[in-house]
Nucleic acid binder design. Structure first.
Lengths: 240, 240
DNA sequence: ACAAAAGTGTTGCTCATACACCCATGA
DNA sequence: TCATGGGTGTATGAGCAACACTTTTGT
């Protein structure tokens, strides 16, 4: 029995591998006027699911890592560079692609800076959608986005990813607005301030933001010591 | 630019896909006399890394899901059925397999009932090792086990996976011993009891364990309502 | 001076820890 | 009746939500 154990070198070539990415940015919803989560989708130009919207993705090049592939896809479909990129899950149900072909997708999720996302490329094939109100997507991509949303909101509560939506420096009000937009609930400014400072996740730059028509708020910077702590022993290395 | 967007149907066949599993069981370490985490490893019988120990795994069959593949591997190498099975991560660094061949491994982690693990098959090719004190493994498998250990210990603190090491019913002392063995720190029995009961993760069966030479402890059962809550919206479905 | 947001102080609640203590059983 | 772990009670303290309050700017 154990004598005929298959080992990682025995490889099935019947199953294809793809890498897709759920890319989050914050934008204002023109309907409600509120800042919400948006994601870019790509229109499928061939079967299966031709004409439907799908997550940006593609095959893994043989000389790039999984994270590199996700970053490349992201750059190609939005023109942007992610401020945060993390593996979400590998989806491999037998029937997830119709028509007999078997595809396993390793999916990443990414956060891009909101002001940069404003000037993201957008043509006939790429369109930004409100993440919580999507049309029916190709394959199992609705499920995937739902899971990505759950992970983002979860991670928002115990981790310090919020700054990835912002620039190098930011005020506490800006950071708080990120939390409120993602978690869709109001946050007490006083308690938020104390929690952030106590966690030592942010550092006072000494500078202030002026021209606000009221008391100028301090500018903070993210404390880079915290990059590692969240992901555990795994440091997802991208080569370039 | 967007006109030539690759889509999930364009698939590279240069990259091979494998599924491996980190299988945890609790056993007594004969050296220290303490209960610790053990994992089964498989001796590689061909290059690369011939003769070294590696995680059980193999190619994905085209008619099985990723989780099915992990469970099949687990059954084949230990003869056991997992009481808990969850995807860990997809490892895809370019150089993780020496000699030019490119392998992406989707790795699962599993918990098996400790008393069953006692009578797990064990021959020349499969050997159980103390998870925190492993030899140098093939490929990047040391890194993988480290990450799996981190995830297990992490999940132990906020989730209710501990019961997967035990049988259908168990005493609070048995459950507490699982926590102490995995987390490697003493746990206050009084507070542990209250926390467990308050979380409603376990249910009193009404029965008691007798023949203990002291006051007979109650037997509890895991509250199955909690199965979903941990993993979020994703319910990893295995067909059989 | 006033509006508006920045920033501080204070209180009360919840929950985790520590540990003293009582309970039930086998020997 | 004693040893042993099962099981209960309770004080202390940390952390957080709620909200009143003070500060600093632009107009």
């Amino acid at each position: 029995m154990a004598a005929q154990l298959e080992q990682p070198t025995d490889i099935s070539t019947d199953v294809a591998l793809a890498v897709s990415t759920v890319i989050f940015a914050l934008r204002i919803d023109p309907k409600t006027g509120l800042t919400t989560l948006w994601i870019p989708l790509v229109k499928r130009i061939r079967e299966p699911h031709e004409g439907q919207w799908a997550l940006p993705g593609g095959p893994l090049h043989c000389e790039e890592s999984l994270a590199d592939s996700a970053a490349r896809t992201l750059k190609r479909s939005t023109g942007l560079t992610p401020k945060y990129l993390e593996q979400l899950y590998a989806f491999g149900a037998v029937d997830r692609s119709p028509g007999g072909s078997r595809v396993v997708s390793v999916v990443y999720w990414a956060l891009v800076q909101s002001d940069e996302a404003e000037r993201a490329v957008s043509d006939d094939n790429v369109e930004w959608h409100v993440a919580d109100d999507l049309p029916t997507l190709a394959f199992d991509h609705n499920t995937i986005v739902e899971y990505a949303l759950w992970r983002l909101r979860n991670k928002m509560e115990y981790s310090r990813v919020a700054h990835a939506f912002l620039g190098e420096t930011f005020t506490l009000a800006q950071l708080r607005e990120v939390y409120e937009a993602v978690l869709r609930k109001p946050v007490d400014p006083a308690n938020f301030r104390r929690q952030m400072l106590a966690s030592r996740a942010i550092v006072d730059t000494g500078r202030r933001l002026t021209g606000t028509s009221h008391r100028p708020p301090r500018l903070y910077r993210y404390n880079s010591d915290f990059t590692m702590a969240d992901q555990g022993p795994l440091t997802p290395t991208r080569s370039h």
